[in-house]
Simulated scan of single mutants.
Amino acid sequence: MKLHTETTLSKWLDTETLAAYYELTKPGITFTVLASMLIGFLLGSGSNIDFILMAHAALGTWLIASGTAAHNQFLEWRLDGQMKRTQTRPLPSSKVTPKQSMAFSLVLIFAGSAYMIFMVNLLAGLISIATTVIYLGAYTPMKRVSAVNVFIGAIPGALPPVGGWAAAVGHLGHAGMWALFAIVFLWQVPHVMAIAWVCKDDYRNAGFRMLPRNDENGTKAVLLILGCLLLLLPATWALYAVELSGITYLIGGMLCAVAFLWYGIRFSLDRTKEKAKKLMFASFFYLPAVWAIIFIDQLIQ
């Protein structure tokens, strides 16, 4: 019995296994969620930042975001195995078993939810739970049903700054918070659609109903991408208009939005995988750049 326990423990503590569990949490996406939450917390706090509360909110957010990412991979591991870009993930490559990933993800989700409720506040906890439920319960299955999934998925994607705001002040009664939600929502639609266009063959093979499946010439994609990127301009201005940010943010944020729009226009004029890839990389740059500009703007105000 002792030998069996030691063998099991050594397997769990194996470096390669730990790396696989870490990969299950999708660190890049989880870091983006965490950064978005912290921006909401920062703007919601104003000049009265409670750094202890912020640390609690960061830990709770990391736990539940990591668990959500891991559970998404558990739900889709067979489909991931059919796509080139995801075949090496921990589950399709058999680094972790489905049962292990399910247990791991659920522990993180429940621990993160409880932590947010008891160590931050009830509203922040409920927003975190809603984010997970919408992502796993609506967006994940909808990807195999309808291209409308891009709008459903943009909701949980845009909720982290709302959760950060709620963590800081315990309410959602400020227009600036909804401006943050709008910025992330409007960013996410072209971001996801650019990825779907670049990976459309992979998505088609796995049975995902992303927009390119029924939009071979890209007309619908262009209308949605350009529509969201144009709306991103007033959403960017709104954060300045409600006096949550200064002129540094306004100039920097508008330049980022215009640059993002430019890549969307280039894709609309030449709907190739190459132009979609450039739009995808522009989307990777946009959100971290805007968050950095907001942070710098807050420092110099």
Rank of each mutant, 00 (worst) to 15 (best):
L13D: 12
W12H: 15
L186A: 04
Q298F: 05
Q301N: 13
L91P: 15
L224N: 04
G46T: 05
F281R: 15
K143F: 07
G252A: 09
A130V: 01
D297T: 15
F41E: 12
R144V: 01
A20K: 10
T5L: 12
S283V: 01
Y203E: 14
R78E: 13
T272W: 12
I265C: 13
G253I: 07
R144D: 06
D201V: 11
I134N: 08
D215S: 09
A114H: 09
L232G: 01
S146M: 03
A289S: 10
V162K: 04
M37H: 09
G46R: 08
V242R: 11
C228L: 03
Y249N: 05
T68D: 03
S101M: 01
L123P: 02
Y115R: 08
S105V: 06
Y240V: 08
T86R: 00
S45R: 10
A206T: 00
L9V: 08
E216K: 14
M254E: 05
G112Q: 09
T61A: 10
I52Y: 09
C256K: 01
L53V: 08
T5Q: 06
L232H: 04
A57H: 04
F267G: 03
Q298V: 10
L231I: 09
A259Q: 04
G163V: 02
I64G: 06
G218Q: 13
K200D: 07
W77D: 13
P98C: 00
M254F: 01
L261V: 06
L136K: 15
W197L: 02
P161T: 00
G252K: 05
L24P: 11
K143L: 07
A124D: 02
K220L: 13
I293M: 04
A289K: 05
E23P: 03
C228D: 06
I49W: 00
L43N: 07
I293K: 05
A55P: 02
L226K: 00
G227T: 06
G157E: 02
K220I: 03
W291Y: 11
V222L: 13
E274N: 06
L108S: 06
L106K: 10
L126E: 02
T140Q: 05
L106F: 13
T140F: 10
G252V: 12
A124I: 13
Y22A: 11
G227W: 05
K2W: 15
T7E: 12
K143E: 13
K275M: 15
Y249T: 10
L159E: 09
S47D: 12
V184K: 10
S94Y: 11
L172W: 03
T140L: 08
W62E: 09
I39V: 08
L233D: 11
Y249K: 09
